[in-house]
Design a protein around this nucleic acid. Structure first.
Lengths: 146, 146
DNA sequence: TGCGACCGTCAGCTTGATTGACTTCTCGGC
DNA sequence: GCCGAGAAGTCAATCAAGCTGACGGTCGCA
């Protein structure tokens, strides 16, 4: 088989883990939460909140893409935007009380998913997978620059 | 960092490889071809063609999703649908002459991308990555069944 | 003070996928 | 021989997740 097998494996694995996370959250009483939203909650700084641009940078997407997710969570009362006291252009995304509760649940859900993966793969393979993916991405970045 | 890091690494790696493939094809004189289209071309049986449903099964998507890709390639004269002599309900997707040429180029492009990945990772890591991903997906499938 | 760069936002588009409903056709059992 | 379950392909609508481009404020610096 000479197909783009590796790329498809990577995508399938990603989808699998993302779906697992959603299920995990459902079982914990948080239905209708998507993986991208969970990821955002985990990226918001607990103490001072985080700017949209910074969230986008952390997730590796454009600020426009990140805004959509923030909008969704804001409608559901999980985060809110407050003006940044240090910069009149910026706003700071903060967790609400409910958002903090959910963020904690997300951390547990993520841990559960990753623990399960670690168990099926074994610690060595699991760590090696991370390293290998890092390596692959690093190499690509350098290529883009050079 | 307690984030769904692994899932994001997997997605990023997939995107990287897919993008590489597109670039590779551009450089070989086939612009505006997406990775999903290339994958389809590689999945069409060279001799007898392949049914839509079978293509969908191989790619792990719905037949409706696969139809879109077949439509795109048919418009561009790379594949055509012919009635299946063995089943009046079915049609067979076949490569045209141009499609065959492109499919060959796709095979080379895929090989180039995977070879590059193998080079940056080293043969051992590369094989291990494949195995690990297979393992992960296998385990998930069993879980769904059980 | 004025200008370039940056922050969030709006608008529009693309890609890849889904579900649901429908037509046509096959095939196995009665 | 017919007849109903179900499969193959199709049409339509929708969704998630991303992108680019444009734009109004604001910041900071020369």
């Amino acid at each position: 088989m000479a197909e783009p097998q590796l790329a498809r494996l990577l995508l399938a694995a990603h989808r699998t883990l993302a779906a697992d996370l959603v299920v995990e959250l459902e079982e914990r009483g948080w239905p209708d939460l998507r993986a991208s939203q969970a990821a955002l909650l985990l990226n918001v700084d607990r103490r001072f909140g985080t700017r949209l641009t910074e969230l986008a940078r952390r997730a590796g997407v454009t600020k426009q893409a990140m805004m959509v997710v923030v909008d969704e969570l804001e409608v559901r009362g999980l985060v809110r935007r407050t003006p940044d006291p240090e910069d009149g252009r910026a706003k700071v995304v903060r967790l609400t009380a409910r958002g903090r509760t959910l963020a904690a649940e997300c951390r547990r859900a993520v841990a559960a998913v990753e623990t399960r993966a670690r168990r099926t793969l074994g610690g060595r393979r699991y760590e090696s997978l991370r390293e290998t993916l890092d390596l692959l991405l690093e190499a690509e970045e350098e290529e883009d620059v050079g």
